[in-house]
Design a protein around this nucleic acid. Structure first.
Ligand SMILES: [Zn+2]
Ligand SMILES: [Zn+2]
Ligand SMILES: [Zn+2]
Ligand SMILES: [Zn+2]
Lengths: 154, 154
DNA sequence: AAGATTATGTTATAATATAACATTACCGGT
DNA sequence: ACCGGTAATGTTATATTATAACATAATCTT
């Protein structure tokens, strides 16, 4: 489903990156936030808040929903995690720095949610905004369908 | 918030259109489905499932959630209603026939959800799909921000 | 150290959605 | 009109997702 060469490295890198971003911005990358982000990346695909809760519970015990949601809010607000509304799930942002707007290609077969950016899309959306005198603040673009792997293209 | 000249006409037209579409396709436009669609259009903006439930309750009594959700499923599957995932709300489709894909400009101020279509956007999304060997089936595009009216442009 | 601020813990509950099974309405063929 | 199949709705219960409200603890500022 995901084709990173070493998934452990992939998680570690995400955590290091997140820590450095938080430091740069004067944000507190607490233990809890780190653990939640780690779980999001460990899943390496959309993960649900209550699944994070269960996994945290196994490690810490007696974690309650608000704790998880608050950590997810923090991570989402700071661009380290995205919420996928059509799945009620969360996924780590693969490029939290050069981050204009992110889109997702979500395979209904294997569940992969591939994050992508496209200048064309950004421009088309901006144009739609201008044409409608609308000032965009946040964009949710989730494209479900079937990925190449699942259609046997390789 | 909405600028139709006569909101009653607007509702009536939507219902007539829906009935005719259902007839053409051999679908049953039952009383319940009609009432739910009517409530969706009466709100003329995103409305929540449980608000529909409350309003139906006042008219029929003892309506339960599955009843509403089933009607909404029917309407959504047949393109008469769209679900706006980022709001957990439903809105009537303004052009259920010439219906390729619909996008929403959602004003965080006044709550209006303006449906729009854009060839550029469709093409940009198709291109993103091709580039990623991804076969799109359903697109969720919800742009939140501020509409012209709320920014005092008129 | 005192006071302000931010983060987390805790309890309870709100809001959204579906599973599973019973009943009713509708449709087509006889 | 009757039968039998299918589709729609009713009903009960429960699952899933998310937040309000208030208490405590950790951290930062002065
Ligand atoms: Zn991203
Ligand atoms: Zn796939
Ligand atoms: Zn539409
Ligand atoms: Zn507005």
């Amino acid at each position: 489903m995901h084709n990173c060469t070493s998934h452990n490295d992939c998680i570690t890198e995400a955590l290091v990156r997140a820590e450095s971003i938080c430091n740069d911005r004067g944000l507190r990358f607490t233990d809890l936030r780190r653990k939640v982000l780690e779980l999001v990346w460990t899943s390496h695909g959309p993960i649900k808040a209550y699944d994070i809760l269960d996994k945290l519970d196994a490690r810490i015990a007696a974690i309650k929903p608000p704790t998880v949601y608050r950590a997810l809010d923090f991570l989402t607000e700071n661009g380290l995690v995205h919420k996928i509304n059509s799945l009620n799930a969360f996924v780590g942002c693969s490029h939290p720095l050069k981050h204009s707007e992110c889109y997702f290609l979500i395979c209904s077969d294997c569940g992969e949610a591939k994050e992508c950016c496209s200048a064309d899309l950004v421009e088309a959306i901006a144009k739609t905004g201008r044409r409608n005198e609308f000032l965009p603040e946040h964009i949710t673009l989730e494209i479900t369908g079937e990925c190449g792997d699942c259609r046997g293209l390789h």
